[in-house]
Design a protein around this nucleic acid. Sequence first.
DNA 1: TCTGGGGTCCTAGGACCC
DNA 2: TCTGGGGTCCTAGGACCC
Length: 414
Amino acid sequence: MIALVDCNSFYASCEKVFRPDLRDKPVVVLSNNDGCVVAMSKEAKKLGIARGATYFEVKKELEAAGVIAFSSNYTLYDNLSNRVMRVLKDYCQDVEVYSIDEAFMVLEGTHDELLMMAKDIRSKILQWIGIPVSVGIAKTKTLAKVANKQAKKSKDGVCYPREEEWSSILEDTQVGDIWGVGYRYEKRLINLNIKTAADFIKLEDTWVKKQMTINGLRTLWELRGRPSITWEDGPPSKQGIISSKGFGNLVKSLDELLEAGTDYAHTAVGKLRRQKSTCQIIQTYVSTNPFREQDAQYSNGCRRVLEHPTSYTPDIVGEVRNQIRYLFRPGFNYKRVSVFLTAIEQENRGQLDLFYKPDPRKAMIMDAVDRINLKNGYSLVHCSPKKPGHSWDMRRELLSPKYISLDEILVVKV
DNA sequence: TCTGGGGTCCTAGGACCC
DNA sequence: TCTGGGGTCCTAGGACCC
């Protein structure tokens, strides 16, 4: 059987772990630059705040309702996520970490045994880490997702339906809540009077394949109990790496745009080398803020195919800086720069070139840099001085401490 | 004043080859 | 000048996920 373990209101729950005073309080977490509400505790959900609401528009309302807001603290969420996943791996070898807050597991045993195990997983993660999770168990991934939704509604946070219970559960599942049915397919299906998962599984294979491609067909089969979505053993290497963030404040000068671009390129190559890959295509985009109607708008991008694949930071940073110089036009208020690396291949696996010998010193330098940064913090050795206080830095006015790092750890007086 | 940041996969159509 | 059958590669666009 397949279990889906999903953390409840993950980011909001993380913020509560080191703040017992917030246990029953409504908490929301904001996106980058404190832009939108991206996560809500169950108390905040009850207040009817829309996910994706823009913070500056709902700020007063949130304050009036006693909601506590946080800027997103990814260092903390990553750390707690890893701890949750480590507990899951104690239960079975086959854990597929699907996202920061959920994982699939393959479990074996009788109905009662698995139910016990699910409850045990739940209470252990709550006690050891402080994060509430829900567990759904079923024959396929898609059904496990459905069961997980039921688990969230139940008292004990666990749901493992028996065969005869499925038909009523599928009737109870809105078509838009099916994993793989997004809001566009949802609209089309509802127009055709297909409102629930129970309606959906009655459709013909050929019709679903034609309307919703092979992926829709897989979803259909999975809902009927036939496993059709593959199991991923490890995280697949990325085929494209993006580093893109809106600026905290608008940027006017080429120098600042270059600084930001250098920083993002540095981040992107870091991800590239961590997965032991090289890239051969580099794309850079710049744009103004489309929401500021009073501003003249400009957005542009360019790309270059390098002669040889690389993961050498100075090569990539240099190319990104050239592209930004090419794209820059004076007189605009820039909001964003994005760096995109593609044509990614595993190191030493790419097409060889008879006349090209890579410089071995580059690999040695990067190896040394990565080792230094791993020990001393990730931007100690950087391509440009990383002084704080850039106008383009992310706005994070409501950031919680990094409780998990030694210099910000809580002191408990007994 | 202020509006997230990542990713994946599939299909159709155009350009080209024999 | 027109015709058939079998391919590849690339790009744009559309759908989805967290």
